[in-house]
Amino acid sequence: MSDASLQPEPTAAVPSGDDAGFRDFFALLKPRVMTLVVFTAFVGLLAAPVAVHPVVGLAAILFIAVGGGAAGALNMWWESDIDALMKRTSKRPIPAGRVTRDEAFAFGMALAGMSVIMLWLATNALAAAILAFTIFFYVVIYTIGLKRWTPQNIVIGGAAGAFPPMIGWAAATGSISLESVLMFGLIFLWTPPHFWALALFMRGDYDGAGVPMLTVTHGRPATRRHILVYTLVLAAMAVGAAFTGIGGPVYLVVAVVFNALFLRDAVAIWRRDEVMAEADNYKVEKHAFKLSLWYLFAHFSAILTEATLGRFGLGGWA
């Protein structure tokens, strides 16, 4: 598939950048995604077994957030052609004509460079290196290299979104550990069923834009099976994490409840066919997607709670 085949029709608005304002450049940062980046990085920072000065901690979270926003801006720069073809993204700053591609690229690159350098100065080289790799992975490997070519794009892209807690942990400890890898794994394994559930009832957008989502390339029955398999693996890992340094009784209760609910929905999705799904307007798939929005928040909140209790000698299994 060539980039040219995905370009908007000649009648589409041509970005001039003349009307660009603060809101437009802020929108390039993908603030909703940035919220997840900030929260998970914050949990990674506080869950680490090393006390961090509040000023250093705030600086680390700020620069991680800026780095995440830079990746979002560069993603929008490259994907402005397909954004113009999808209903849910057509009003973004570049396809809407409020910001030019060149402006978005310069903005993203400047923020990327600044975030990595400042995180290095504020914390350590390892945290900065992981942030730099995260931006590179998301923009070059995922967005430019693989998203338009493989139905495993969501799996690959999920890795980029899973790095923030590792960055937060590294900012505090200067190292990578089993606990930080487990937090990475939570996000990495959660991402495919989360987005595939969305793709089941939003397939029209991906069809029209030519994005090889699993629903498009392998069909919905295969997507339903993939959702179940990933959810099973995710549940095993999420519950198992309760017995590591980031877990404890509070986390175990949260993990058991939310993974039982997520598995229930995954099994229900697997058992359905398109006739059943269309008959109730994809009610089960939409429920699974909404539940998945709370899934990560609940797990990382539980990790944060265990870390906070641990400060008072009450967390974990001790």
Rank of each mutant, 00 (worst) to 15 (best):
93 P>Q: 01
117 I>P: 09
104 A>L: 05
124 N>Y: 03
121 L>N: 04
85 L>S: 13
146 L>T: 15
105 F>P: 02
105 F>E: 03
115 S>C: 04
156 I>L: 15
135 I>D: 10
114 M>I: 15
120 W>V: 00
144 I>E: 06
120 W>M: 10
142 Y>N: 08
126 L>F: 00
126 L>I: 00
109 M>D: 00
137 F>Y: 15
131 L>M: 10
118 M>P: 01
104 A>S: 12
144 I>F: 14
91 K>S: 14
112 A>T: 05
147 K>E: 11
111 L>V: 03
150 T>N: 10
121 L>P: 01
102 D>P: 00
141 I>R: 04
93 P>A: 02
100 T>V: 10
142 Y>V: 12
109 M>P: 00
114 M>W: 08
102 D>I: 02
106 A>L: 14
100 T>M: 06
90 S>E: 15
133 F>L: 13
104 A>N: 04
131 L>G: 06
150 T>F: 14
83 D>L: 07
134 T>M: 03
83 D>M: 11
115 S>D: 08
129 A>P: 12
129 A>R: 03
112 A>D: 01
99 V>N: 07
146 L>W: 14
141 I>W: 14
149 W>C: 03
132 A>T: 09
134 T>E: 05
155 V>F: 14
116 V>W: 01
138 Y>K: 08
130 I>H: 04
139 V>P: 15
107 F>E: 05
146 L>Y: 12
111 L>N: 07
86 M>E: 05
133 F>A: 14
154 I>E: 04
129 A>D: 07
85 L>T: 13
97 G>Q: 08
93 P>M: 02
124 N>V: 01
84 A>M: 11
104 A>I: 08
143 T>F: 09
111 L>A: 03
154 I>W: 01
101 R>S: 12
105 F>R: 15
111 L>C: 07
90 S>R: 15
128 A>R: 06
119 L>D: 07
